[in-house]
Simulated scan of single mutants.
Amino acid sequence: MTAGDSFDRLDDDDYPAYTMGRAAAMLGTTQSFLRSIGEARLVTPLRSEGGHRRYSRYQLRIAARARELVDQGTPIEAACRIIILEDQLEEAQRINAEYRRAAEATPTAAG
Rank of each mutant, 00 (worst) to 15 (best):
I62C: 01
Y15M: 07
G73N: 00
R94Q: 14
T108D: 06
G28E: 02
T74H: 08
L46M: 15
A40R: 08
E86L: 12
Y55P: 00
F7Y: 13
R57F: 03
I37S: 07
R54A: 05
G28L: 07
A24R: 01
I82N: 07
A23E: 04
D12M: 00
R81N: 09
R22N: 07
N96Q: 14
A40G: 09
I83Q: 08
L69K: 01
R67G: 02
D14G: 08
Q59A: 11
R9N: 08
A17H: 08
M1T: 11
R54K: 10
T74L: 06
R94C: 12
N96W: 05
G111E: 05
D14A: 10
T30P: 06
R61P: 06
G38H: 03
A24G: 07
S32L: 12
E104G: 06
M20Y: 03
D13E: 15
Y18P: 04
S48P: 02
Y58L: 08
A63L: 09
M1H: 11
E68M: 12
M20F: 10
I83L: 03
A79Q: 03
A25P: 04
Y18V: 00
L10D: 01
D5T: 11
A79M: 02
A25S: 13
T106V: 01
R54C: 03
A97K: 07
T30E: 11
E104C: 11
P45I: 03
E77T: 13
A105H: 07
R61V: 05
D71A: 15
G50M: 11
G73L: 06
Q59G: 02
D71V: 12
T108A: 13
Q59I: 11
E104M: 10
T44Y: 07
A105D: 09
